[in-house]
Simulated scan of single mutants.
Amino acid sequence: MSKHKIFTMSFASVYPHYINKLEKKGRSKNELDTIIFWLTGYNESELQQILDNKTDFETFFNKVPQLNPNVTKITGVICGYRVENIEDPLMQKIRYLDKLVDELAKGKAMEKILRT
């Protein structure tokens, strides 16, 4: 079975689209980075290295320092699928990030996005 196209896409190619989506809604790159750091455990320099190296999504998520233990609190529909029911672990992690970006774009408070 072939890999899903998004698995082999570079994170750096999608990151600017996340930023544009959020800035159009009055949110910031710093807020995006905050949710990425919360979800993955990466820090600023590690994220910059991922962007510079054009790391693909599969590697990005396979090398996560520590997936946030509250990740299971991320629920709801993204791209027509309930994130909590996605069976492929890698696709689920990608959709978790998509869901967090959507929540940020919709104006949800950061405290709620970060499940605090």
Rank of each mutant, 00 (worst) to 15 (best):
K29R: 15
I36P: 00
V64K: 01
D98F: 08
D88W: 08
D33M: 11
K3D: 15
K5H: 13
L114D: 04
N85E: 15
G76D: 12
T8M: 10
R82M: 06
I6L: 12
I6E: 12
V71S: 14
F57M: 13
M110K: 06
F11G: 00
I74H: 02
I86E: 05
E46D: 06
E111R: 08
G80K: 05
L67G: 00
I50V: 07
T40P: 04
T116Y: 11
S45I: 08
M1Y: 06
F11T: 00
L39M: 13
N30A: 14
V77T: 13
I36D: 00
S28F: 08
L32K: 02
H4C: 03
E84L: 07
N62D: 15
K54R: 10
I19L: 12
T116C: 12
N68E: 06
L104F: 07
S28L: 09
K112W: 04
W38N: 00
N62E: 14
I19V: 14
I19D: 02
I36V: 14
Q49M: 08
V77N: 13
R82S: 13
I94C: 10
Y18V: 03
V77D: 14
W38P: 00
R115V: 07
V83M: 10
T8P: 00
Q66M: 13
I94W: 10
V14G: 01
R27K: 15
F7Y: 13
D98T: 01
E87Q: 11
I78D: 01
E31Y: 05
R115K: 15
G26I: 05
T72H: 14
L90R: 07
V64L: 14
H17Q: 13
P89E: 14
I78P: 01
I86T: 05
V71A: 15
K24I: 09
T8D: 15
S10P: 02
N30F: 06
A12R: 10
M110P: 03
M1W: 06
K24Y: 05
S45F: 05
E23V: 08
N53V: 03
I19T: 07
Q49F: 07
N85G: 02
K99T: 05
L22R: 01
M110S: 05
Y42H: 01
K29L: 12
F61T: 00
L90N: 05
T72S: 15
F11I: 04
K108P: 00
E44P: 01
A109N: 06
I35L: 15
T72I: 10
K63I: 04
P69A: 11
L39P: 00
S13C: 08
V71R: 08
N43S: 07
D33L: 12
V64C: 10
I19H: 03
L32E: 03
K106D: 15
N62H: 10
L100F: 06
